[in-house]
Amino acid sequence: MEQVAGDISGQVVLITGGGTGIGAAVAERFAAEGANVVVVGRRIAPLEEVAGRLGERVHALAADASDAASARSAVSWVIERFGRLDVLVANAGGHGFSPVGETSDEEWASSLNVNLSTAFVMAREALPALLEGGGGAIVVVSSLAGLYAGPSVAGYTVGKHALIGLTRSLARDYSRRGVRVNAVCPGWVRTPMADAEMDEFAAHAAEIPDREAGYAAVTADVPLGRPAERAEIASIVRFLGSRESSYMTGAVLVADGGAHIVDLPTLAFDHAGM
């Protein structure tokens, strides 16, 4: 029987950076709806924790998404185990938290490797499997930093901007062959990485006593007035990975609580109570 549009039961989903944060939440969402999920990352312990917590539909696989041989091996494992691949979620990222003048060659290479090469290499190695199966979806997890620049995050910002270019290039070249490629750009999301940033914020700002105050401060000018929960971003990834988004490719969905619509020059009026 033909699968109902939006039904993801039985689909095979490969998620990079699947051991924590958004990646783990995406794994939970797909598995809850009957998909077979493989979470990939360089450290096996958090992957096994996710797989153990989510049940038999989730499988942990240690692999470096930025290394061609490792990524190819991961895709081969998926094909041998399930016979096909339907969705790739390129979620791995992090690093690159310094301004250009304070970024060494090694730090620059590392930030681009983690934020960009992981998506490029895994997409390249997954494409044959997606094409052989008649098509599928690639969902690239970028960031609001893929559209705007924050302070002292040069490597992260450049890598996340480049992910949008990668998304559009993949969509342009492979959509007619059945592979849709879209990106999501989250703003602040409650993840272990963001928690650590809020803890550091609280440690260095006298007026920020703790993590929650940090989140409140960084989202004070966001129209929704709060950070996202991981499950909220996972629901968008699930949509882009399913047939419900069948006429979308090359799109960039922003999920930032409305932060991108704020007119920065007028914030002073809000802060003055006007």
Rank of each mutant, 00 (worst) to 15 (best):
N115S: 11
V139C: 07
R124I: 13
A92M: 05
T20D: 11
G225K: 12
I233P: 08
V114C: 03
V237M: 08
A62T: 11
L131D: 15
R230F: 00
D86Y: 07
A137H: 14
R168M: 11
A216D: 15
V78I: 12
I164M: 09
S70T: 00
G96E: 09
R230T: 10
S142D: 05
S175L: 04
A45Y: 00
P128A: 10
E102Y: 01
Y174C: 00
F82P: 06
L54D: 06
A272H: 02
V181C: 06
V153A: 10
R42G: 14
G101M: 04
V58Q: 06
L224H: 13
Y148M: 09
T191A: 02
A145Y: 14
A220K: 12
K160A: 04
A259F: 11
Y156F: 15
L112R: 09
V218G: 01
V121F: 00
G150N: 00
T167L: 11
Y156E: 13
G146R: 07
A69N: 00
G133H: 14
E197Y: 08
L14H: 11
V139Q: 10
F239N: 11
I44N: 02
P128Y: 06
E207I: 01
L131A: 15
I15A: 13
G133L: 13
S76R: 14
L47W: 11
V252P: 10
E28Y: 01
R42W: 12
G23P: 09
